[in-house]
């Protein structure tokens, strides 16, 4: 079976036009600049803002799994810590 058969061409053309029409929508999503990460750096933006609670949860999880580590990533989300 050929991928591009003649009766597929209109459909492919439509998809290409649709993709081209939707592409500019992506350009409105600009990355957050380094100096704009004040909100992201707030403690409540982290996964474990309550250190005590997350320590308990982690301890329970480690006991259940009989394995420790591998939970979470370093850094606070502001890209600087």
């Amino acid at each position: 079976m050929r991928l591009v058969s003649s009766n597929n061409l209109p459909r492919l053309f439509f998809l290409a036009v649709a993709a081209a029409a939707l592409l500019p929508a992506c350009s409105s999503v600009t990355p957050v600049a380094a100096w704009e990460k004040g909100t992201l750096a707030r403690p409540e933006m982290t996964f474990d803002w309550d250190r005590l609670e997350s320590d308990y949860a982690e301890h329970t999880y480690n006991s259940k799994e009989s394995a420790a580590g591998g939970a979470g990533v370093g850094g606070g989300g502001c890209g600087c810590n």
Binding site: W35, K37, G38, A41, R42, G76, C78, C80, N81
Partner: peptide
Amino acid sequence: FWASWCGPC
């Protein structure tokens, strides 16, 4: 360039 929310700053 610094901000109050940035630890190393």
